[in-house]
Amino acid sequence: MLKIELPQNERSFAPGGTIGVDAHWALDKPADRVELRLVWNTVGKGDRDLSVVSTWSYDATSMNGHQLEEVTLPEAPYSFSGKLLSLVWAFELIALPSGESTREEFVIAPNGRELTLHKSEIV
């Protein structure tokens, strides 16, 4: 089991803000290490872009553990969505080498609201 906890289950943050991210792991089989990654990726029509912005690596000598990280969020890019493309921020927690992983998506944008590249409201 891999779990990422964000403060008060909040999913929207201002650019440059600092948050506490709690990474938990309870593995079925031994791992070399567990990595927490701050990433953004695009979702939509066509090729997918992915950028790993920061990585925190932990020894997984114990199959159970947790680590609280104080993370300063980047100033950019902002989370946005249009018809063709969305930019999504996420924390990913990955056990290596098995590749078992979990992911928590969130928004980085002014006022914590994803930018909408469309004239009407997102439903």
Binding site: G46, K83, S86, I122
Partner: peptide, 20 residues
């Protein structure tokens, strides 16, 4: 039938779903 705008991240036909 709805004609509301749907963001790419909610589109089930997005590449990331098709690749799976």
């Amino acid at each position: 039938m709805s004609h509301a705008f749907q963001p790419a991240r909610n589109n089930p036909f997005a590449t990331e779903h098709l690749l799976r």
